[in-house]
């Protein structure tokens, strides 16, 4: 969240609610809508670290609002983030741990675990199909995010198949 907010503030100074709206607008319905409280907490931390600064702007009939802008240090942090490759997904799958450990302890049968998990993944996939269908074709960012989730899920299923071949 920190760096998303820095990126948005690099575009223009904004107050907390505007940042929430900007995130919602850019990522569309595919991204979990950020909690406004979480945004204010993050802004507070960024301010404390000297990456953003806030100015009070008076409003005629409402309390003052805080408008945040990026500092030079904030700009540097943002550049460093943009220049670095992003960490890939990590395989630290809870199901895999269950699959390996459960039969050892006699808690469950591997084949049953795998079959249940496959059905579960397929029902998530069905969910994603439905989401994709309900998402407007213009909402490209949302559709790409859904497609990414589908491809990850396909990889999970392929891996499940490998586990079934090798462990059963």
């Amino acid at each position: 969240m920190r760096l998303f907010l820095l990126a948005l503030l690099a575009k223009e100074p904004a107050h907390g609610y505007e940042l929430k709206q900007a995130l919602e607008q850019i990522f569309g319905s595919a991204y979990p809508s950020p909690n406004i409280g979480q945004i204010y907490v993050t802004l507070g931390r960024l301010e404390k670290d000297g990456l953003v600064r806030a100015v009070d702007v008076e409003q005629s009939n409402r309390p003052n609002k805080k408008v945040y802008y990026l500092t030079a240090a904030g700009r540097e942090a943002l550049d460093a983030w943009a220049d670095e490759p992003t960490e890939g997904p990590r395989v630290r799958d809870e199901f895999f741990m269950k699959l390996v450990l459960a039969p050892m302890t006699g808690v469950a049968d591997r084949m049953a675990l795998i079959n249940r998990q496959r059905r579960h993944y397929l029902s998530i996939m069905r969910d994603l199909n439905g989401l994709a269908e309900r998402t407007a074709p213009e909402d490209r960012v949302a559709l790409l995010l859904i497609e990414g989730a589908m491809l990850h899920l396909q990889a999970d299923l392929d891996w499940l198949e490998r586990c079934q071949e090798d462990l059963s």
Binding site: A30, Y31, L131, R134, L145, G148
Partner: peptide
């Protein structure tokens, strides 16, 4: 809506 793909 496509709500929370990431959460899904």
């Amino acid at each position: 809506t496509a709500g929370d793909v990431v959460e899904l």
